[in-house]
Nucleic acid binder design. Structure first.
Lengths: 331, 331
DNA sequence: TTGTAGGCGTTATCAA
DNA sequence: TTGATAACGCCTACAA
C-alpha cells in the first residue's frame, strides 16, 4: 500500500503538502493540488485511517450502544445512524447492552477503549447519574429517548405522553367510551408517560379514569397475552384496548382471538411504536409511529455538527403520529 | 491518559518490558510482571488500541457486511457475530449493502479502508467472481449463506434444499397431497434450492409435480399476497402452501384470510427462516428454522481461529429444522 | 504557499 | 530476561 511519503515523492512535493490536500483544510495551489491528486490515483493511494487517528487523536468512529442488535426497534435506529454517519465517512461501532446495567457499562467501557469520538446511547438500565458523570469526560455522549436536563443539548427524544394521548384520543374519536389500557413496566419512564397521555385524553373527553381497566405488562408479547386474559376475566366492560407497545398488542390480539373475540369487531386494539411487524399482524395494527429511525439520524447529525464541525439542521424533539390500519372499529 | 511510557517509568522498567506484559507473548519474570501490573492499575493505564494497531498492523476489528441493518434476519446474525467477537475483545464494524451491487462494493471498500483484519459477508448482489478475486487480497473473506468452491474453508452455509424438503415432507406427513409452492426470486440461489427440496419431497412421496401449483414472488410480504391471489384464481385445488420465506407466508396468510379462507382449516401454510415475527402471526407460523445466529457465531469463530490464532471448534455446514406451530392442519 | 521536523503510543528487532 | 531504538503512517506547529 502506498504511503503519503511515496505520494509526496511521486508528486515532487513534501509530506506536509500531501497531507494538506488530503485534509482540504489548508491552502494549496491548484497546480500542486493537481499534481498530488494525480500521484495519488496513479499509486492507488488510500490514507491509512489508523495512522490518521493516532496523529490527530480522532478516530473518526462513533460508538452506538443499544439494548439489542436483533430487534426491529433498534434495527431501525441503527440503520438511521449508520446511513447518516457512513455518508460522512465516519465509522460506526455498535455494541449491545442486553438490558443489564453490568453489560451496558462494560459496553460503554469497550466503546471508550476504542477511542470513539462520540457515543450515541439508547439504553434502559444504566442510571441517569452515571450518564451525566460519563458525559463530563472527554467523549461527548448523546442520548436517544431520554431527556436529561443537564444534557439536554445532546438529547433526542419523543413525546411519549402525546403518543399515549393520541392513541387514546383516536379510540375516543371512533366512538369508544370504555377504553382499557395495557401499560408497560413501571420502571420505564416512557411507559409511565404513555399512561399519562391515556389519562389526559380520558379526562379531556370527560370519561372517568377507571383503575379496573388498567393492567401492567413488561413490554413482552407474552405479558400482553397474560394481561389481556387477566383483564378480560376481571371485566368485559371495554370495547377498545390501548397498548403500551406493539409486542404487547400482538400478545393481546392473540389471546383475544383465543378467547373467541373478533378483532376489531369485538375489541379494537391500538399499539405503540409501529415496529416493522405491526403490519404483518392480522388485522394490521393501528399504532403510534415512533420515529426511531429519524431520531437515530438526528443524533448522528448532532454528532456531525458538534464533533466533526459540520452544519446540519437539527431538532431535539419529536412528536409521534398515529398510523391507522385495521385494528380499530368505529362504533 | 497514562501511556506505556509512564507505566515503564513508574515500574522502573523499559518500554519493551511493559509491552511484553501487555501482550503476554514474551517471557517476563514474575517479579517484574507484578511490578508492571501494579503500576498499570495505579495509573489506570489502558492500552491505546489505535497505537497498537498502527504498530502491529492489526486493527483488531472485523468488518461485517449485511444487506440491511434493520431486518430480523440479519439482526440475529449480527447479534451472534457481535457476541462472539466482543467476548474476544475484537471490534465489529457493520455495514449495510442495501441489496445493490454498487453499495455492496462501496461497503466492502469502506470496510477495507478501515483496515479490518477480516470480512464477514452475507450479501446477494455482488457476483461470485468478485468475491473470489477479493479474497485473493490480504484480508481474508468469510461468507455466510454462500458456498463457493474456491473459498469453501471460509464458507458457512445451510442446506436450503433440505429445508424445502423438510417443509414439504411435513405437509405430506400431515396428510396433504395437493401442495402448492410459493417460490422466492429466481436469481437467488437459496430460493432455487428450496424449490428443489420441495420437488424431491413430492417425488419421494409419489406425487406428481404440477407446474400450476407453483408461483414466484420476490421474498417480500406484498408479493406473498399478490402471488397467493394469483394462485388461488388459477386453482383452488390445494390444501397446503409451502412458502420460500416467512415474509411471503405472512402475505399469503393475509390474502387468504381476505378471501375468506380460514388458516389452517381451509389452507395450511408453512414458512421458511423462522424470523422473529413468525410467532407473532396468527395462527403462529409453522416454519423452517434458519440458524442464522448460529452461523454468524460460527463465522466469527472461523475468524478467531484463522486470523487471531485461537482454537474454537468449527463447523461449516448447517441443517435446518422444522418448527411446528399452528398453521398446518392434519388432514 | 510550501517544507522541516517532532510527536502520536505502540510493537518488534537487536543486542546485551 | 531485559533494554535501546527504529519503525508504523500521518498531522501540525513552526519556519521559510
Amino acid at each position: 500500500m502506498a504511503t503519503i511519503y511515496e505520494v509526496s515523492k511521486a508528486a515532487g512535493v513534501s509530506l506536509a503538502t500531501v497531507s494538506r490536500v488530503i485534509n482540504k483544510n489548508a491552502a494549496v495551489s491548484p497546480k500542486t493540488r493537481e499534481k498530488v491528486e494525480q500521484a495519488m490515483v496513479e499509486l492507488g493511494y488510500r490514507p491509512n485511517t489508523i495512522a490518521q487517528s493516532l496523529a490527530s487523536s480522532k478516530s473518526n468512529s462513533v460508538g452506538v450502544l443499544v439494548s439489542e442488535l436483533d430487534s426491529p426497534f433498534f434495527g431501525e435506529m441503527m440503520s438511521g445512524i449508520e446511513t447518516e454517519l457512513r455518508s460522512a465517512g465516519k465509522q460506526v461501532i455498535f455494541a449491545a447492552g442486553h438490558n443489564t446495567e453490568k453489560v451496558e457499562k462494560e459496553s460503554i467501557e469497550f466503546l471508550l477503549s476504542r477511542f470513539c469520538d462520540a457515543l450515541i446511547i439508547h439504553i434502559e438500565q444504566t442510571p441517569n447519574d452515571y450518564l451525566v458523570e460519563l458525559s463530563k469526560g472527554k467523549v461527548p455522549v448523546y442520548l436517544i429517548n431520554r431527556y436529561l436536563e443537564p444534557l439536554k443539548q445532546r438529547c433526542v427524544y419523543m413525546n411519549n405522553e402525546l403518543g399515549g394521548y393520541r392513541a387514546t384520543k383516536f379510540a375516543i374519536d371512533k366512538g369508544h367510551k370504555n377504553i382499557a389500557y395495557l401499560c408497560g413496566p413501571e420502571y420505564k419512564d416512557d411507559a409511565m408517560e404513555r399512561l399519562k397521555g391515556y389519562q389526559r385524553a380520558l379526562e379531556e373527553a370527560g370519561i372517568d379514569y377507571d383503575e379496573s381497566l388498567i393492567v401492567k405488562g413488561d413490554y413482552s408479547e407474552r405479558s400482553g397475552s397474560e394481561q389481556f386474559s387477566i383483564l378480560y376475566q376481571r371485566t368485559q366492560n371495554f370495547s377498545a384496548l390501548v397498548c403500551g407497545n406493539d409486542e404487547m398488542a400482538s400478545g393481546a390480539m392473540k389471546e383475544a382471538r383465543d378467547l373467541g373475540l373478533d378483532i376489531p369487531r369485538a375489541i379494537s386494539i391500538i399499539g405503540f411504536d409501529n415496529t416493522s411487524f405491526a403490519k404483518y399482524l392480522y388485522p394490521q395494527l393501528t399504532t403510534i409511529d415512533n420515529p426511531v429511525g429519524e431520531m437515530g439520524k438526528m443524533a448522528a447529525k448532532l454528532v456531525l455538527n458538534e464533533v466533526y464541525e459540520q452544519k446540519h439542521l437539527v431538532q431535539h424533539y419529536f412528536e409521534p403520529e398515529l398510523v391507522e390500519r385495521s385494528s380499530v372499529l368505529t362504533v
